[in-house]
Design a protein around this nucleic acid. Sequence first.
DNA 1: CCCTGATTCGC
DNA 2: GCGAATCAGG
Length: 187
Amino acid sequence: MSWTDERVELLKKMWGEGQSASQIAKELGGVTRNAVIGKVHRLGLSNRATTGTKTETKAKAAPKAEAKPKPAPKPAEPAAQAAPEPATPKPLPSRKQIIPAGQPLPPQPSANEISPEALAKVSAIEKKAKKLTLMELTERTCKWPVGDPATDDFWFCGLTVQQGKPYCEAHVGVAFQPMSSRRDRRR
DNA sequence: CCCTGATTCGC
DNA sequence: GCGAATCAGG
């Protein structure tokens, strides 16, 4: 695969949207995340936020060759006309603690009309849950919340998810009900 | 362990 | 220009 115009555009778009290199690579197909990152750099759109509070973390990297002439001072950034973009809106998903502390959790299946078996399954696996924190969740970790967010008795399942799903097999079972008894719009 | 981006360097 | 290998960090 080569970097066609379209592919580059998609890359730019996704990168701009804050997608990770691996996600972009998956979307494009035929390339690895390394390829994507490499391209991103070559395109010159590496840093998405120069509001560097921490931009010095990477300053050293030459374990192999040290005889680096490094004749590229590059004092002034000629990025005058190459930046029509006002700025890179970086809306950080700051989720403080906007938790009602009540019990209005999302679809927290109130153990009701869900498949009894599925529930049993959940109870069973919850014992083996990795109990991850919000930040530790990835595309491959079950994002099923357990416990009360208002207390520290709250965690996410964290088991390996089922391909493509946000939850592990057990939780997928109770999360994605076919669509049956879900008509309680009584209020 | 999983993941992230950054950098280097042979091709 | 490309991207695997590697690095550094979460």
